[in-house]
Write a protein that binds this DNA or RNA. Structure first.
Lengths: 232, 232
DNA sequence: CGTTTGCTTGATACGTATCAAAGTTGGTGG
DNA sequence: CCACCAACTTTGATACGTATCAAGCAAACG
């Protein structure tokens, strides 16, 4: 089990370019952990202890407000990194990481990681690429929040989630987003309220764009959603 | 002049940890350029040619929409990098870079930069730190756009700009934001319209929070702006 | 000067938040 | 297996913030 987990992590972008010898060196620093659904990997403001690499499951990153309203900045899945930001600059985690379902992760302690990226420049470069990817996504999210209306933002969010956790619908047609998300999560991903998120999703359903199936959302008309996402 | 420019770049975060010998190697790849106000360093969608390091002046990064409305994702000043994202992953620039005033930059061609970061791991690490910083700012911007009202977003923007281009007011009291920004720019930084931005700024002025001076904004009551920024 | 560019104000319409209440679902224990 | 509870979803009525449209004004500029 643990061996299998490590093997999967070895093919992760972060480590894929290491030689077998280097990998044997690196693997000593890795630790496996498993969390049930709705548990916290760390909280916004905690000191940076470790980098997390998701092996299985999904994790949302939530940015809290002084007041009650939270924002789900992103949802991450297998192979992706959590906590890199804090780990590299040593400042507290800027978001809270919450599991959406049972999740297994591999961690590397901050100090060990710092050693590794000095020893293996290729790992460094993969980190740069990953930060890059995040920054591009984040920039696009900023644009969307700044100029799109709720309907467009939700359409975009659904399409993004499809890319992250899409699977053919277990019954009939469509692409299922196989991630446990509440309407509240959708609302927090799109900077709106539960009620509005529900209203929009209902309308999408009535228009045949999406469909519900055991608490999951199935996308029926991706072209249609893309049209809405781009603002008609 | 050019020598002076290079000397300044040497103290930039990206290169500060290089030895004198390494620096002599690096400096061969650097090129100086100067742009008047309102000129374009590159456009969103252009292939990534080079990394830019600002020596003097200010540059805004604008993300365009399919429709007309643009978003100013950030404003950058001396010592900061432009175009890193595209340069590292090789994909087109995700934003357009426009000078807000006369601006001098140092550039490194994409290929040369790739060579450098392989040769000098310390540079790699500085890149990671810079991407980190950007990502933190971008995340906070997302949060602000998602949950804050316009008034709060503008207060936040003013405080950020103060950190970037703040200087003691040339007359009387207050801290001047020494950057040429139109109300349109403010609106595009905060995801609102010119008219709304103007209304909010006018109210701030009437309440004694800010003041105008030769086309610049002077912050008179930073505590007050911080109170508004945090939502009453 | 006239023309452009940016600033300002007002009237109105629309999108979305807010508050309230009821319906639905899944899980738990009797 | 059913009853119950808590969490989540749904719908409606209303209020509020902000966009939009329109028009006038000031300053910069060739």
């Amino acid at each position: 089990m643990k061996r299998e987990m490590m093997k999967a992590v070895r093919t992760t972008p972060l480590f894929r370019s290491l030689s077998d010898g280097d990998w044997r060196d690196v693997v000593r620093f890795l630790h496996g952990h498993c969390y049930p659904a709705d548990s916290y990997l760390f909280f916004q403001g905690d000191p940076p202890e470790a980098l997390y690499i998701i092996w299985s499951g999904r994790v949302k990153l939530v940015r809290h407000t002084d007041q009650g309203r939270d924002v789900v900045v992103t949802v991450l899945g297998p192979g992706q990194l959590i906590g890199e930001m804090a780990v590299f600059d040593g400042r507290p985690y800027s978001m809270t990481a919450v599991t959406l379902e049972e999740t297994a992760v591999v961690t590397i302690a901050r100090n060990d990681l710092m050693t590794l990226i000095q020893r293996y420049p290729a790992v460094s470069f993969e980190v740069i690429l990953e930060l890059n990817r995040r920054l591009r996504l984040c920039t696009e999210l900023v644009r969307s929040l700044a100029v799109d209306r709720v309907e467009q933002r939700i359409a975009r969010a659904l399409l993004r989630l499809k890319d992250l956790g899409g699977a053919p619908a277990p019954d009939g047609e469509g692409v299922m987003i196989d991630i446990h998300l509440t309407r509240q999560d959708i609302a927090e991903m799109t900077g709106t309220t539960v009620e509005t998120a529900i209203r929009v999703m209902s309308r999408f359903r009535k228009e045949g764009l999406i469909r519900n199936y055991k608490g999951r959302t199935i996308l029926l008309d991706i072209k249609g959603l893309e049209t809405i996402a781009r603002g008609k």
